[in-house]
């Protein structure tokens, strides 16, 4: 860190609105989706100025990267919008009077899914008409595609619904889970589906064997989930530090929970695993950002987003850059070496 408080390789921004999510576009730009309905775009992580695009009449509630660059956003104005890298935007769907709350994009194709209340819509491609997959038992609380794009999972009260697109016709299966299920996440191999739960646990469904384990030991709802690049560790928010579940325990019935880098009077709100290395970023309720080395189960403090809750963290696909944002609109972009050497 320099004498004037600057950290080499880290840039800070303030976009003045709650950051609902952030992501790296396929073209290398950085996007911050904001609750004032706009998107802030940095042409590259080190650029000096941001472009701002007012896309929604209300708040942006969900966002996902578009396959050819740019991003998709869903809002409480009932619109699904695509922002292209050249700044042009187009409406892909409109559900007047409803909220579009969740989006997921296939990792391997241009397929897109969105959820509004109980209804989930599947778009085979951005130019294709959305297919209504039918009503869930209750409102969707999260969507995720499997790594091969063959499965789409929607979390809801009482479990998760899985649509299988790999066959000639779409089939549907339902995993019964207790209570209100939240964020669903597939592991990199596609074997496990982790689903956060309202009541402070995570359900880990083994899609190959059918077993479901409940991972308990949380102070708060573990809303943010991700798998380490090595697929052997599930990371979640919900405690005062990093929470890692070691999934690779031969002969053990339950994964082992390891908490590390616990902090006082705060809790982790967001966690993002590096796409290639055993490294993760963790964001906390009082604005601090830590970088963790997962093999050593240790983390170091990097910086603080002006004491505002960290609401979003993301890595670029090549793992060289990270970005994040907070409830007040304070955001950052950072180079990996800057994070590790801070």
């Amino acid at each position: 860190m320099s004498d004037d408080g600057q950290i080499e390789g880290v840039s800070f921004w303030n976009f003045g609105a709650h950051v609902n999510g952030c992501l790296f576009g396929a073209e290398g730009a950085v996007y911050f989706a904001l609750a004032d309905g706009s998107v802030a775009r940095l042409a590259d992580p080190a650029c000096a100025s941001a472009d701002r695009y007012g896309l929604h009449g209300g708040a942006i509630l969900c966002q996902a990267p578009a396959p050819d660059g740019g991003l998709f956003t869903g809002g409480d104005d009932g619109r699904l919008v695509q922002l292209a890298p050249n700044g042009e935007s187009v409406d892909l769907a409109s559900l007047p009077g409803r909220w579009i709350e969740h989006l997921a994009v296939s990792p391997v194709s241009s397929a897109l899914a969105m959820a509004s209340g109980k209804n989930v819509f599947f778009f085979p491609g951005p130019d294709a008409e959305g297919i209504d997959l039918g009503a869930l038992p209750s409102a969707a609380s999260g969507l995720a595609f499997s790594p091969d794009g063959g499965l789409l999972a929607a979390a809801h009260y009482g479990g998760a619904t899985l649509w299988d697109f790999s066959g000639e016709s779409t089939s549907l299966a339902r995993i019964a889970l207790r209570g209100l299920c939240l964020t669903p996440v597939f592991d990199p191999t596609g074997r496990y589906l982790a689903v956060a739960n309202q009541e402070k646990f995570v359900s880990l469904a083994d899609l190959a064997g059918g077993a479901v384990r409940e991972l308990t030991g949380y102070a708060r709802k573990p809303l943010s989930l991700c798998f380490a690049a090595t697929a052997d560790t599930l990371l979640t928010s919900g405690n005062s530090g990093f929470t890692a579940w070691d999934l690779d325990r031969e002969g053990a019935d339950l994964p082992l929970q390891i908490q590390f880098a616990q902090q006082e009077e705060t809790h982790q709100t967001t966690v993002a695993a590096h796409p290639l290395f055993p490294v993760a970023l963790g964001g906390f309720s009082e604005g601090s950002v830590f970088v963790a080395e997962l093999t050593a189960k240790a983390a170091i403090y990097v910086f603080n987003l002006e004491a505002h809750k960290v609401t979003a963290l993301a890595w670029s696909a090549d793992g060289l850059h990270a970005c994040g944002g907070s409830a007040s609109g304070v955001c950052f972009t950072a180079l990996l070496p800057a994070l590790l050497g801070a």
């Binding site: 209300g58 409803r98 109980k118 209750s138 209570g179 209100l180 009541e199």
Partner: peptide, 14 residues
Amino acid sequence: ELVVGADEEIFEMN
């Protein structure tokens, strides 16, 4: 614009 329609969903805790 800040009038929101709600579908009442009552959930039991576990």
